[in-house]
């Protein structure tokens, strides 16, 4: 399987809203830690190395 780049989230606004809401009232350090955990949790859920590496490459500046 390769990285899904078509729309896959049913309710985009709801998802994005929750993502931003999570960060409200947190310090910069707390946000960084939260984001790192989120990446680790989701990466494990995806599991497939090929997909993960493709996403990493795509995310690079």
């Amino acid at each position: 399987m390769s990285l899904q780049l078509q729309t896959n989230i049913a309710k985009p606004d709801s998802f994005y809203n929750r993502l931003i809401d999570m960060q409200r009232d947190l310090s910069e350090e707390e946000v960084q830690m939260m984001n790192a955990k989120l990446i680790l949790l989701l990466s494990n859920h995806i599991g497939e190395e090929e997909v993960l590496f493709e996403a990493m490459d795509l995310a690079k500046p």
């Binding site: 960084q32 830690m33 790192a36 955990k37 990446i39 680790l40 949790l41």
Partner: peptide, 10 residues
């Protein structure tokens, strides 16, 4: 360091 600590917490 943040990633490392996140791994340890999880």
């Amino acid at each position: 360091r943040v990633f490392r600590d996140a791994v340890l917490q999880l």
